[in-house]
Amino acid sequence: MTESAVSIKGLVKRYGSFTAVNGIDIEVGRGEVFGLLGPNGAGKTTTLECLEGMRKANGGKLRVAGCDPQSDQRELRSKLGVQLQSSSLPDSIRVGEAIALICAWHGLSERLDLIQKFEISDLLKKQYRELSAGQKRRLHLVLALLNNPDVLVLDEPTAGLDVQSRAQLHEEIRTIRLQGITVLLATHDMAEAEELCDRIAIMIHGKIAVCGTPAQVTAAGSKETRIRMRTTKGSLLPGGDIGGATFVKANDGYLEWNCRDIAPSVTELLKRVQDADDTVEDLRVERPSLEERFLELVKGVENR
């Protein structure tokens, strides 16, 4: 059996009497993009910091790229790339110097390939203070990749970025994924998690509330998929359930149904339209979003 890229078993982290992470288990396979989601204070960053070796866990077993984050720090640094949530560099360091410095500490020659790939050659002479927020994030991402890591930890990499920088960074994360690097991504952005992650875990109050693919997590919620349809002749009449879909309302020429399993419902609806010698003018399927599922989970935990 191949070892997971990241293995967390029963991780517990306390700050005084407050338990930030309360016995979580996560296994991340090699080459997987795994998203860690949760509200503020859920324990995402603490979990990542324990994996990075920046914080010592109070309990549990951690392995990152085959290393123990506390006892194998030196080996870990050569196998792990980290982009911290809040990190900085000295204001007057030039981009080229920062890259040369980190390469030197990793014992590597300068990674010209990464400079070209991330299109930062025009920034090499710029000082850190002169970079935009998006450029700073890109630089920190490049620094995290300099050691050609097996595992890359990204803690809210797109927080505070404009739409263009965000899209650019997403593209870069997709490229990283194609290289087979395991990515552990903590984010508040549900759309980002849905778009980039193979699997996600939602953390609430230091525990994993749910874990699975974004589709699995969304489907496990109480919200149903909404089907809206308008036909040319209006042959379908309001009311009545069709193919497992429950009629909701008629609105602006559209009929609306809710269903859990859309395939039989849509098939039945289309069959009825065809039987009535009608044609579909517009058909919309609105699946419940990850954000709705997330809010549902958070509300559920808070009401408990």
Binding site: R77, L80, V82, S87, I102, W105, H106, H140, A144
Partner: peptide
């Protein structure tokens, strides 16, 4: 956070 950034980068 420069110290932290330096540390995670070796």
């Amino acid at each position: 956070g420069t110290l932290r950034a330096f540390k995670v980068n070796g």
